[in-house]
């Protein structure tokens, strides 16, 4: 474990927020990191926020110890199909999912710790040509599957033991759903972004497809990260992995867009672009509350305040190489930054 202070880039002559390196963990048995996340782990009456790291063939759970050290509690071996991503289940203890596959997701597995018999287990939740998956509040999991012309969008509820409790089929749009986001504060509302750049809205209780709204042609293949309703408008945070540089917005990474679900009309509210002087474009990222983080093609990590629309911190590629992964822990107060060699750095933001 190490501790130190990294000074973020100075923007507009101001020192904005800072990222403070809190600790570092490295899985010596893993050579290539695929994803990183957090999970609440509870045993013997105590509950702790643990770090989860994934490499191609296994997923490890790390428990915090004193003095910013970490202990590996367990490693789930996942067999021959490679891990593609961790699918956290927010507000859930001792349960998470992982997506496995070759080029596309072919399987979703549940990884769990059973307090009853103090054992770690795994089980299959879903198999198919899965295009998108998201863990929702209250141990629910939504996914979209496509086989030829047919698309299936389904939500399953998981019991504490990991068994499938019940499910709800959601009416699929014609186009392929590429990402989902819960509408915060509305338990039954879900949004998705599609391959032809539309936002769709579902009622999770009835399965109804309530509305389809076009995002606009300027930003193709948008991915939704966060959605909330305020004053009768639906606000959606989108990332634009394929966006081109424009005069008005520079090189955009995230945009906050407001939609009126009654009329299906939308308007851009704020655009968060790559900081001036940063070459390349958005590669992958994460959003928590009003904070967004992304790995850029330059190998740097950039952090934005989505309400101000500007970059607040920048982590240049380290001496060991480029950053590969950037995720918020359960709150945006803690950033998990991963390198391909399996090193995960925790920063206080």
């Amino acid at each position: 474990a190490g501790a130190g202070q990294l000074t973020p880039a100075l923007l507009d002559g101001l020192r904005e927020e800072s990222l403070q390196l809190v600790s570092k963990l490295k899985d010596s048995s893993s050579s290539c990191a695929v994803d990183v996340s957090t999970m609440w782990w509870g045993a013997a009456g105590s509950k702790e926020l643990c770090v989860v790291t994934a490499c191609e063939s296994s997923v490890s759970l790390w428990k915090p110890l004193a003095s910013d050290h970490w202990e590996k509690l367990h490693t789930w071996q996942l067999g021959e199909i490679p891990v593609i991503q961790i699918v956290p289940l927010p507000d859930t203890c001792n349960l998470m999912c992982v997506a496995l596959g070759d080029l596309e997701i072919g399987e979703i597995r549940l990884l769990l710790y059973s307090t009853e018999n103090d054992s770690f287990k795994q089980s299959l939740v879903k198999a198919g040509n899965i295009k998108a998956v998201l863990g929702l509040q209250e141990r629910r999991l939504v996914s979209s599957c496509r086989t030829g012309q047919e698309q299936q969008v389904e939500m399953v509820s998981l019991a504490e033991t990991g068994r499938n409790k019940d499910g709800q089929t959601l009416m699929p749009p014609e186009e392929t759903v590429l990402a989902f986001a819960e509408v915060e504060g509305m338990r039954e509302a879900l949004v998705g972004t599609t391959a032809v750049n539309s936002i769709v809205v579902w009622n999770l209780k009835t399965g109804q497809l309530l509305k389809k709204m076009h995002i606009g042609c300027s930003y193709l293949a948008s991915i939704c990260h966060r959605a909330y309703s305020d004053s009768g408008l639906l606000f959606v945070v989108l990332s634009h992995p394929h966006a081109k540089e424009s005069e008005s917005c520079g090189s955009p990474a995230f945009r906050l867009v407001a939609f009126n679900p009654r009329t299906a009309r939308g308007a851009g509210v704020l655009c968060s672009s790559l900081p001036p002087g940063q070459a390349g474009r958005y590669l992958e990222g994460d959003v928590q509350d009003t904070s967004a983080v992304a790995v850029l093609t330059s190998g740097a990590i950039a952090v934005w305040d989505l309400l101000l629309g500007h970059c607040t911190a920048l982590l240049p590629p380290g001496p060991q190489g480029s950053w590969a992964l950037a995720r918020w822990a359960t709150s945006s107060a803690c950033l998990l930054a991963g390198q391909r060699d399996g090193t995960v750095c925790l920063y206080r933001y």
Binding site: M171, M186, E188, A189, V201, N203, T206, Q208, L209, L210, K211, S229, S231, G232, L233, L234, A258, F259, N260, P261, R262, T263, R265, G266, A267, V269
Partner: peptide, 23 residues
Amino acid sequence: CSESDLGPISLNWFEELSAEAPP
């Protein structure tokens, strides 16, 4: 963005759209 850009706004959009959408 103003109401004129986005059209008439309803605070109960989710309930209204759920009542109108096909089951």
